[in-house]
Design a protein around this nucleic acid. Sequence first.
DNA 1: GTATGTGAACCACTTCACAGCA
DNA 2: TGCTGTGAAGTGGTTCACATAC
Lengths: 214, 214
Amino acid sequence: MPIEIPDVVIDRLPIYARALNLLQRSGREVVSSQELGAQLGVTPAQIRKDLSYFGRFGKQGRGYSVPRLLEELRQILGLDRDWLMVLIGVGQLGRAILAYGGFAPQGFRIVGAFDADPGLVGQEINDLVIKPASELKLSLTQRPADIGIVATPAAHAQAVIDDLVGCGVKAILNYAPIAAHVPPDVHIKDIDPVLSLQSMTFYLKGQLAVAGVK
Amino acid sequence: MPIEIPDVVIDRLPIYARALNLLQRSGREVVSSQELGAQLGVTPAQIRKDLSYFGRFGKQGRGYSVPRLLEELRQILGLDRDWLMVLIGVGQLGRAILAYGGFAPQGFRIVGAFDADPGLVGQEINDLVIKPASELKLSLTQRPADIGIVATPAAHAQAVIDDLVGCGVKAILNYAPIAAHVPPDVHIKDIDPVLSLQSMTFYLKGQLAVAGVK
DNA sequence: GTATGTGAACCACTTCACAGCA
DNA sequence: TGCTGTGAAGTGGTTCACATAC
């Protein structure tokens, strides 16, 4: 009886895991949903309900064991192994992604980099030789990857995503500013700081009006 | 009678605007909620309801005028003006943000860059001289900014955010991997690709299990 | 006494479905 | 006839509140 777990719940688990990591490093042994919630800006009930989808990890009257709960979450999310990623698009943005030091310590390894620009192909960055985008599909069949990172210009992004999907890649991190189409069994997350800014300006505009600054 | 507009609605408006931009560039004059929805993976009713919070922009039997609706959205979101931003943290990530070409064309201008590392202070990047982080507050009082971009290490991020809030900054784009605390009138959006990856692996793990690969 | 786990109540957003207008 | 705008119905996620366990 696998009850359907809401996507929003899954999106929160990594946030819990991150906080527990911090707590663990600071030597905390136990934490209550109350305290964790206060730290994260989430209600305690939210946390308890979220966790209850997966099991009963707490002890009444005490709270949750920090190392125990962290380990459970890591297992639930699949963070107890490495994941292989390929990057497509090695322009300014792509190079920043390659250089980004935040992936590897979390078990996310970029094992291939592709670009359509012949001027970039052959260059070596971080021990990775950039391959031609035309070889993406062949390369993926020989050496599969779990996740694709798309950092191409918007105009090429959908085609690249289609290629990834065609090769059986089921998770895509998309930095291109497009609303991509993928089949229902493929997961895609968009990273677009411009969209974030453009929604915040709505509220800024409102506050100016209230302040009478117009 | 200012009916409360859900945040999720505001988050979708920039996506609509982006699609309309594309349509306009391709010369389209009119678009229906049906077609726009198909392009964005959203139901037509969703789009119509979202827009209805702000007015009646369509024509029955025809659809929406692309230039007209785009202009309305730009006004609603406050995209019809420039917004000034300051960047705090000019490490690898911060430099990538400075170099990123996607902000300026959308009216988002970085007008100040700060870092705590004396080795970086004084360096010039993209016509911006990096200033010491200790001068952030003073600098903001002399030359206010609308938005703060935080790209410091996690350990310093909350303090920087407190400084920004203290200077009256009401919108923050946070690249640091922390759950920051801000007062209710301050808007914050987090950009953390690792969190996105860590939630996708949950589904990847599930698919492996189903496929029997373990 | 204290904090979890959870059905039930609540709330918010989404979708429906149709009246109304071009 | 075609598509918008929108109350009403539906759905899904959040919060409540309390029985339960330490």
